[in-house]
């Protein structure tokens, strides 16, 4: 009985490791990341839009690029529950964004900045 349980466990384990990405998902991720790099590059080098619109576009592209790396290369979706990796990542991002947004906000209204 115990032996049988151990076996199924091993089987599951093998399946889990096999699921860690395939050539297809890596190629899709790579192509997406290339496209997401070329779009902002073209937008900036050719001065296609106003400065504000360009800023928004390239920031969105960078965030999408981040998502592509996370989903296709770092396999954040394949994580078993409980999702400690995802939760710690969100925690880190919240702190990081607080620092960045807070610094910009404070220093924009600081006479020293300009």
């Amino acid at each position: 009985m115990a032996n049988h349980n151990a076996h199924t466990e091993h089987g599951d384990h093998g399946g889990h490791e096999g699921g860690h990405g395939s050539m297809k998902s890596y190629v899709i991720g790579f192509l997406l990341s290339i496209v997401l790099t070329i779009i902002p590059l073209v937008a900036v080098m050719n001065d296609m839009f106003s400065k504000q619109v360009t800023t928004v576009i390239i920031l969105i592209m960078a965030i999408l690029q981040f998502a592509v790396q996370l989903l296709f290369f770092m396999h954040i979706r394949d994580e078993k529950k409980p999702r400690y990796n995802l939760i710690s990542l969100i925690f880190g991002l919240v702190i990081m964004l607080t620092i960045v947004a807070g610094s910009i906000w404070i220093m924009t209204y600081n006479a020293v900045a300009t």
């Binding site: 710690s88 990542l89 925690f91 880190g92 991002l93 964004l97 960045v100 910009i104 900045a113 300009t114």
Partner: peptide, 28 residues
């Protein structure tokens, strides 16, 4: 592996601070 992941999270914060510094000082 999870421990390493936590290190990466602290690195996210490290780079966040450097980015904040850069953005704040970009005109100076």
């Amino acid at each position: 592996t999870f421990g390493f992941w936590l290190f990466l999270i602290t690195d996210v914060i490290l780079f966040g601070v450097l980015f904040a510094t850069y953005v704040v000082l970009r005109n100076n």
